[in-house]
Structure formats: C-alpha cells, structure tokens
Design a protein around this nucleic acid. Structure first.
Length: 505
RNA sequence: GGCGCUAUCGUCUAGGGGUCAGGACGGAUGGUUCUCAGCCAUCAGACCGGGGUUCGAAUCCCCGUAGCGCUACCA
C-alpha cells in the first residue's frame, strides 16, 4: 500500500464518544501502519448543533488518546480548509456543475408536502422515496423559478446510475455489498439555505482531499451507494476503498447511549484512566490481534493492525474488561506518567494543593507505584490508599478486626513492642525489617502473627500493599508539608495504644 | 413498511467443511507471599432456530427470529 490517505470526520455536536474514538483509532492505526496520512476534518454542516467548544473538546480527546493527525483543523494542509462550514463555496460550485450536466436539479417541494408523501408511501408498504416531481420541470423553467423561489438541490439518482440496477462495492470488512438502485430516492445535496447535506459534502471532500480509504462505522454502510453515485456524478476516476467497522453497543446490545457518562471519552480521562489502556481496549473492540495477546502498546497495535482481522459483529463495551487491561497498563506506566495521573486525582481529592512541596513528585510516584497494579484508574487511588490519608485511632477502632487485634494480648504485645522502637529515626525499608526482627525475637510472634497486628495498627486495614514497601511511603509522607498531614508510623502506634489504654486487659 | 448489516461461552473474540470448538476478561477451586491484589494451577461455561447441500455443517446456501443501521432540506 503506498501512502494511503484516511480521515476522521466527526461532527462537533457533542463529546467525543467511545464509538467515534474507536473509528478515529482505526483510521490512525491504518495510516500509521502503512505510512499514510491521517486527516482531521470537521463536519459542521449542521450549524444549529455544532459548536466550537465541542470541536475543541474533540481535538483534546484525540490528542489525549494519542491520536495525532497530519492534516486538518489545527494542523493545516494543502487541501484545506478542513472545516466544512468554510468550504461552502466548493459545494455550491460542484452542485452547479451537476445541475449543468443534468445530474441534479432544483426542488421546490415544500417540506410539508414531502412529509405527507413519505407517510403515504410507507402506509402503502413501499419504500419512501422522493417521487421525482421537480425532476420533470424543464431546465429553463427551473432556472427561472430558482431565481425567485427558495429551492433545494436534489441529486438525480437515475441519471447517475445510468441504467445500472444496483450499486455494489467490495468492502474491506464485509466483502461484496450490493444495494438496489430502486431503493434510493433522489436525495438532497444542497439544502434550501445553500448548505450541503452529509452525503454530498462527504464525497466532495473525500475526493478533493484525495482520501484513499474511508474507514467508518457500519451505520454508514447504507449510505455508501449514494456516495458512490455522487462520486460518479462528480467524475471521480477511482472511488476510495471502504471499510465499515462494527458498531460499539452498550450493555445488552442497545446503542451506546450518550446519556451514559461512560460513553464519552472525557469521562475516562477525568477518572484517571491511562490513555494507552483506552487505546488498547478500543482496538480490541472489533479487531483481534493475530497473536491473541490482549495487552498491547500503541506501537504493537500499529504493527499488527489490518482489516482482515476486523470482525463484522457489533461489540459490547465491557467496563470490567477495560478495567483489567487498564490495571495492567497502569502497572507498566513510567514513573513520571504515574505522578502526573496521581497528582491530578490527589488534588481533586483535596490531599494535595495546587503546588507541590519539594520532594512531593518523587513521593507521589512511590505512592502510586504501591497501588498501580491494582488500579484501573487513578481516581481510585485516594480511596485505595485511605490507610495513608485517613488514619485516626477512632476510625481504626471502628473496624472489628482492629479491635480484635488490640484485645488479643499477643497482638497487643507485638504492637507495643514495635511502638517502643518507633522513634524519631525515619522508618526505611531495611529499618522496618530490622525492627520487625527485633519484635519477633522479643515476642516470639512470627509470620502472620507478627505482621498482621502491625498492619492493622499502622494502617487501620486488614489488607493493602506489602508493608515493607508501604510503611516507608507513609513515613516519607508524614514529613511532607501537605494540606492534610499524614501521621507517621510512630504516631500511629502510640495514638492507637493510648486510645485503648485501660480498656483492654 | 422497504432496503441493508450482523448472529460462537455472561463479555471480547479465535477458528471457517472432519478441532477434545482455542484464548482473554469475569466466576469457582487450590497453591504462593504478613493481608488483599498479583502470580501459578485446575474447573465450569458457547457455535440463535429450522430446512437444504454434503459421507460429514458451527463453518456453504435458503428461510425464520432477534439486534442494529439506512430510508431527513441530521451526520
């Protein structure tokens, strides 16, 4: 394949949806795989629903996912402008060409009239198609009327089909697909207000931008014959190849609703998911790698991507699977990325302020690393690491397991022995191991009997990361000037013992 | 209504005339580390229904059913 040109062409009418993101991803993968060009075009011909705010968010979302584009809005390129609202003159010119060549005609029918006809046809059990009334108006009369009457422009499907009974094409995913021409009515290419309709603008643009492969959702499969016909009318020498991707559905197979917050990419970003995890998971929705492994980096996806392994059946977006993948990505993230993700979420949780004290980034990195392998998203960090941030004797004592440990004389002995040894000196990993060893010799407790009381006393929880890793992080944190200070291990043990003194045997 | 696309474990999927129908997530069980997680091992779990073609169909064809899409002067 020599330098394919592909495009992602969203409408800026809402957040970047996971379905659209997946379409963008497949375009990007294909372009990168084959050394091609990835174009971003904005289809804002529905002026009432489009907004530049959405456009900006769309582009942010793509960049966050790691999908950079080579040409298009924000990047420029020789085939621009890349916003359809800035290309109106081009569509107008092309439409006039078609009228001149007898492949399109002005239509004066009222919307009301059309509506009624559609209803009647449907009632009669027929396909609802434009009956072609205005097609029969003589050209000169049509031109006269057009000067004084508002008119849309319709495409003359029959003229473009030139006798063909059906339009077929070889889809890269579906194989041969064929539609009867009789099912396609003359559709509007230029609306009354002069703006182009989707099925027209797409073809004009893809042609002018020299797009070689149209990669989009299955919802456009039925539009393809219309666009192929327009392409013929526009005298395109070779139509692009098409690849229609299976749609992404929500739970139960229903369309992924925009109302579900999780349907927008922005939500995953806010939740602190690593973008590489989203990219990985999205790629697996409708495609499978030849090797069968599912944890893949962007580079690996690029190297392995191809339409031969794209499925035709719709895929259901499954959060648990994404989360499993995300946790594995999280565990492999370089330290600086971990710090970046974690800082944002800790700030949101009020644990960090807007500027970090010296040494904090390193500390956050070590903290995040404690939990990275179990977290699909960093927004879970404050909750997961509550042992660090939320320690009070009262809270610990509210846990029956903590109570039990303190009521048990052996466990209490362990905690007291440790407490006596916890002084000013920073508790590093080797020092903790040495102390644990001393406590073991003094109390005779070992293994679970030794570590469990310590864990419970110092973290207030029955489970968590390995203590030899976690306790030094607690200690370091206790010396950092944070908005909510963290109690040191010594303070923890002493406070807990003090709170229960006298109440236990 | 018309036209089109699709149909393998709960989910993502591999396979595509003869396979013990494979893997991953999730579930269950056991092992391991102070705990959880993780890791390792084991187990349960699927070819939408009906016809046809064939020695043989999950695989090819037809019909049905279901889901989804298009059928807009939305994209």
């Amino acid at each position: 394949m020599t330098h394919p040109r592909v495009r992602f062409a969203p409408s800026p009418t809402g957040e970047l949806h996971v379905g659209n993101a997946r379409t963008a991803l497949f375009n990007w993968l294909f372009a990168r795989r084959h050394g091609g060009v990835f174009i971003l075009r904005i289809e804002d011909t529905d002026a009432s629903r489009s907004s530049t705010a959405h456009e900006v968010r769309l582009m942010d979302g793509l960049r966050w996912l790691g999908l950079g584009w080579d040409e298009g809005v924000g990047e420029g390129g020789e085939d621009g402008p890349y916003r359809q609202s800035e290309r109106l003159a081009l569509y107008g010119d092309r439409a006039e060409d078609l009228i001149r060549r007898g492949l399109a005609y002005p239509c004066f029918c009222s919307l009301h009239e059309l509506e009624e006809e559609r209803a009647a046809q449907r009632e009669a059990g027929k396909a609802s198609l434009y009956p072609g009334r205005c097609r029969r108006i003589p050209k000169d009369e049509a031109a006269r009327r057009r000067a004084v009457e508002p008119a849309a422009v319709r495409f003359d499907v029959g003229a473009a089909a030139a006798g063909d009974a059906s339009i077929g094409f070889e889809d890269l995913v579906h194989g041969e697909v064929r539609f009867p021409v009789s099912q396609i009515g003359d559709f509007v290419i230029l609306r009354r207000d002069g703006w182009p309709s989707y099925n027209f603008a797409v073809v004009v643009d893809d042609l002018q931008m020299r797009v070689t492969h149209v990669i989009r959702g299955d919802d456009h499969l039925s539009n393809t014959p219309r666009q192929l016909l327009v392409g013929r009318g526009l005298l395109a020498t070779a139509p692009p190849r098409f690849a229609h991707l299976p749609l992404i559905a929500g739970p139960g197979g229903a369309p992924l609703s925009k109302r579900e917050g999780a349907a927008s990419l922005a939500w995953f970003r806010e939740q602190g998911y690593p973008p590489e995890a989203l990219m990985n998971y999205l790629a697996l929705l409708g495609w499978s790698p030849p090797g069968g492994q599912d944890l893949l980096t962007g580079e690996e996806l690029i190297a392995q991507f191809g339409f031969d392994r794209v499925s035709r059946a719709p895929a259901i977006f499954d959060r648990p699977k994404l989360d499993a993948l995300a946790a594995r990505h999280m565990a492999r993230l370089p330290a600086d990325r971990l710090v970046e993700l974690a800082s944002g979420q800790l700030r949101k949780a009020g644990i960090l302020g807007s500027d970090l004290p010296p040494g904090a980034p390193e500390w956050i990195g070590r903290l995040a690393l404690l939990y990275a392998d179990r977290l699909p998203r960093m927004s879970d960090l404050p909750k997961e690491a509550h042992a660090l941030f939320d320690f009070t004797p009262e809270k610990s004592l509210a846990d029956p397991e903590v109570r039990r440990a303190l009521d048990d004389s052996r466990s209490r002995g362990v905690i007291e022995a440790l407490s006596r040894r916890l002084g000013r000196e920073p508790l590093t990993a080797p020092r903790f191991q040495a102390l644990a060893d001393e406590v073991r010799r003094e109390t005779g407790a070992k293994g679970k009997d030794l570590y469990h009381p310590i864990r419970i006393a110092l973290t207030g929880a029955a489970s968590g990361p390995e203590m030899v890793k976690m306790l030094p992080v607690i200690e370091e944190g206790s010396r950092l000037p944070l908005p909510r200070s963290i109690a040191s291990c010594g303070e923890r043990a002493r406070a807990l013992l003090a709170a229960t003194r006298g109440s236990t045997a």
